[in-house]
């Protein structure tokens, strides 16, 4: 019982831990991106219907998955901050929001560039595209709400409620292609059946998914270190850090 699980939930212990972990994730992100791009452009074959335009999938799908996943994790941290009143939880939520917003923007941008040559349009107001756009608004709303309240603790609470409310949008995005008629096609990869992709294409996509994971973790860890310093400025340990 010597290991205390709550040890790392204090900003003081998490700050150096994040500093030690971040480099590994930066390296992993770069290495996996290089591997993923190599497979995506040089190993994976041309698609039978879409030609080479389908190669956008190697960033579109990882970004879209991360946009949803980061939101759930962000809302989880925000909720933990609201319930247990732990300082680090809210800081983690704040560190994840910009990366999540970026992933959503990338998913929308790459989707537009993919939709134009294949569907014949940059944008349609179908359920999948509309709900993903709502996700971007939720991220932006979360950051704006937090920034608009001066007292950080009150800002945490208000933003957390918005984040928790917004979670309902995530299953809507995911299942929109099943629940409604959409222009967007169904999922190529699902847990209930075999993926409908050639194996090298699938491999390239999965490697890029892990690259985006590593990237998101690395940016969130680096960003949370800055946030910790800003918000723990009055703490003795930060003062000590400042004299080093």
């Amino acid at each position: 019982m010597s290991f205390n699980w709550f040890r790392y939930s204090s900003p003081q212990t998490f700050y150096p831990l994040a500093g030690r972990l971040a480099p590994f994730f930066w390296i992993a992100a770069v290495a996996l991106t290089i591997a993923g791009l190599y497979i995506g452009f040089f190993v994976a074959p041309t698609d039978f219907q879409q030609g080479d335009s389908y190669r956008i999938i190697f960033i579109h799908v990882p970004a879209a998955w991360m946009s949803m996943f980061i939101y759930v994790v962000m809302a989880g941290w925000a909720a933990a901050g609201l319930i247990f009143n732990t300082r680090l939880s809210s800081m983690m939520a704040n560190a994840l929001a910009p990366t999540g917003a970026l992933m959503t923007a990338i998913a929308l941008w790459t989707g537009a560039l993919w939709g134009r040559p294949t569907w014949g349009t940059w944008w349609v107001w179908d359920a999948r595209l509309t709900s993903e756009l709502i996700l971007l608004f939720l991220y932006v709303g979360f950051m704006a709400l937090h920034a608009s309240i001066d007292d950080p603790r009150r800002a945490d609470k208000a933003a957390a409620i918005l984040a928790i409310v917004g979670v309902v949008n995530v299953p809507i995005i995911y299942f929109s292609v099943k629940w409604w008629n959409t222009l967007h096609q169904g999922s190529s990869v699902s847990i209930t059946r075999a993926p409908s992709m050639a194996s090298t294409m699938l491999l390239g996509m999965l490697v890029m998914v892990f690259a985006f994971w590593a990237y998101s973790i690395a940016t969130a860890l680096t960003r949370v270190r800055g946030i910790i310093l800003e918000r723990e400025r009055h703490a003795a340990w930060v003062a000590q850090l400042g004299t080093e």
């Binding site: 080479d52 956008i56 970004a63 923007a105 990338i106 790459t110 040559p117």
Partner: peptide, 22 residues
């Protein structure tokens, strides 16, 4: 890219520019 160069490179270019910026 089989005639899709603008779209493919537009997607990859902007994505990695945004990430580098972040």
């Amino acid at each position: 890219m089989g005639g899709y160069g603008r779209y493919v490179w537009g997607a990859f270019g902007v994505t990695f520019a945004l990430m580098a910026g972040e």
